Simulated assay, not measured.
Amino acid sequence: MAINEGLSIGALAARTGLAVSAIRYYEAQGLIRPWRNAGGQRRFDRADLRRLSFVMIAQQFGFTLPQIRAELDRLPGQRTPTKADWTRISAGFRARLDEKIETLTRLRDNLDGCIGCGCLSLPNCALYNPTDRAGEKGAGPRYLMGDRPET
């Protein structure tokens, strides 16, 4: 296949492992932008392989489609991301991933303890969160959100 012919949606699906319906969904979300050939068929640039791979990986890390689209939209003219682009994008994602890892570590380490939810139903909540002191810091499971019990 000549490079200027572009990829059919079927070829893109075969190469990425995505269903055609998923590719159409990502298109509707503005993550990829196909063009039409002289026969009116939808075609994709080879760079869309990289874009879709990035989408798939970013989703596995828990990023939302709006977050992913915001990063991809920063690339001028929908061009293929360069090494510098990926370095910039990954730096931002790395910071968010570090925050998620910290939260998951707290969750794992405190799974059997007080999470600062204010229920006061566990016997040790009287020690960790007497009179729901965690509630003074805001709503939700305060200790899993990063607040620390006062000692």
Rank of each mutant, 00 (worst) to 15 (best):
T16K: 06
D109L: 07
G62F: 05
N110H: 12
R42Y: 04
T131F: 08
T87D: 11
S21N: 10
T16C: 01
Y143T: 00
L31N: 10
R42C: 04
K83H: 12
K83W: 09
T82S: 15
P141T: 04
L127A: 12
S121F: 10
A28V: 10
M145P: 08
E102K: 13
I101Y: 10
Y128G: 00
R69H: 13
D109Q: 12
R96G: 13
G140R: 01
Y26N: 02
G118H: 06
G30S: 07
I89K: 04
A84N: 10
R50C: 08
A84Y: 01
M1T: 10
D98R: 15
P141V: 06
T80A: 15
A38K: 14
R88W: 10
P66Y: 03
F61Y: 14
A58Q: 05
E99R: 13
D48R: 00
S90W: 12
P34T: 07
G10W: 13
I32P: 02
P81E: 02
T105S: 13
I57R: 15
G146P: 02
R24F: 05
R51Q: 01
D45I: 09
S53M: 10
G17M: 04
A22D: 04
T131Y: 08
A95P: 03
I23E: 02
I23S: 01
P141Q: 03
K100C: 07
L107Y: 13
I115G: 00
C125Q: 05
D73N: 12
R15H: 04
Y143R: 06
L127K: 14
G116Y: 00
P130Y: 00
A28C: 10
A38P: 08
E27F: 07
G146M: 05
Q78I: 08
G62T: 13
P130S: 05
N124A: 03
F93C: 08
L97T: 14
A13Q: 04
P81Y: 09
E27W: 09
T64S: 15
G140M: 07
L52M: 03
N4S: 09
T16E: 02
I3L: 15
L97K: 03
P81S: 02
G113Q: 14
E5K: 15
A38L: 13
G62R: 06
L111P: 11
T105K: 14
